[in-house]
Write a protein that binds this DNA or RNA. Sequence first.
DNA 1: TTGATTGGTCAAGGAGCTTGACGAGCTACG
DNA 2: CGTAGCTCGTCAAGCTCCTTGACCAATCAA
Lengths: 139, 139
Amino acid sequence: MREPRLSRMLLEAFRALDEEVEAALRDRGLDLRPTQARALLLVDRTGTRLTELALRARLTKQRMMQVVDELEGAGLLRRAPDPTDARAKVVKPTARGLRSRAEVRRAMASVESRVRRQLGERRFRSLTAALVELTGGRI
Amino acid sequence: MREPRLSRMLLEAFRALDEEVEAALRDRGLDLRPTQARALLLVDRTGTRLTELALRARLTKQRMMQVVDELEGAGLLRRAPDPTDARAKVVKPTARGLRSRAEVRRAMASVESRVRRQLGERRFRSLTAALVELTGGRI
DNA sequence: TTGATTGGTCAAGGAGCTTGACGAGCTACG
DNA sequence: CGTAGCTCGTCAAGCTCCTTGACCAATCAA
C-alpha cells in the first residue's frame, strides 16, 4: 500500500467487521443492515423514545425515525404513545424484535470473539483501550 | 455507553480522525473533503491512470472518475492522453495540485503525530499493528 | 483476423445521512 | 394564571458517497 494512513486503516477495519456482522446476520436468517441492527440493540425492553434513541446512536432524530420506520415495517419494533407525555411515543421491541435482538447480540458477539481470538486477549484489550482513548468519550 | 461494540468504536475513531484531518486542511486554507484529499495522495507525480487510482483507493472507477472530476474542477489535477495506450489517459497533479498535496500530507501527518503522542509510541504501534491484522491485506 | 478484454465515460439510482420547518404538547417564569 | 419558549415526533428536500449497468474505442490473445 502506498499511503497507509491511520484513518484509512480504521475505516477499512470498520468495513471489514461490518461486513462480517452483516454476513453473520444473514447466516442467522436476519435481513438487517448494520445500522438497523445497531438501532435494535439500543431499544430498551420497556420502550425508549425516538429522541433518546437518536442520542444513543449519535444520529439525528430524523435519521433515527427512518431507521425505526424500517424496523417497524419489518415487524421488529412498534410505537406506542408515551403515557407520561402526550407529545412523545415510545419505541418498543415486538416479540419478534426481541428474538431478532438476541440474534443480533449473538452475531456481534461471535464476530467480536473471532477478532479476540485472532488478536489474542492482550492485544484485543490494548486495541479497544486505544480506541476508547481516541474516541474520547464519544462512545 | 450501552453497547460498546468494536465496530462502533472503529467507526467513531475513524470519524473523529477524519474530522480532525478535514479541520486541519481547512486551517491550511484547503477546501478538500477527505475522500478528495486521499485521492490526491494517490496520484503519482508522473501521472497515473484512472483505473489504477480506483484500484489503489478501492473504489469503483466510476466513483474515482467523479472524484477526479472534482479535483480537476478545482484545478488540482488534469488529464492528459496516455502516450502508450490510446484508450487511456493519465491523471497528473497540476502545480497547485502538488502544493495542495504537500499540505494534505502535512495535515495528515500532524493528526497522526497527535495521535501518536496521545497514545505513546508503543501503544500507537500496537494499534496500527492490530489494524493491519484486522484488515488482513485489504490495505 | 476476430473475439474477448480493458480504459474511460454517461446515466441512473440507492444508502445513509443532513438541514429546515412545523404543529402539538409541555414547562418555566412573570 | 398566561404566555413565551422549548421539546417531541414528523414531513420534505437534498446532499455525499458510492454502486450497477451499458457503451464505445482501443488493445490483446487465439
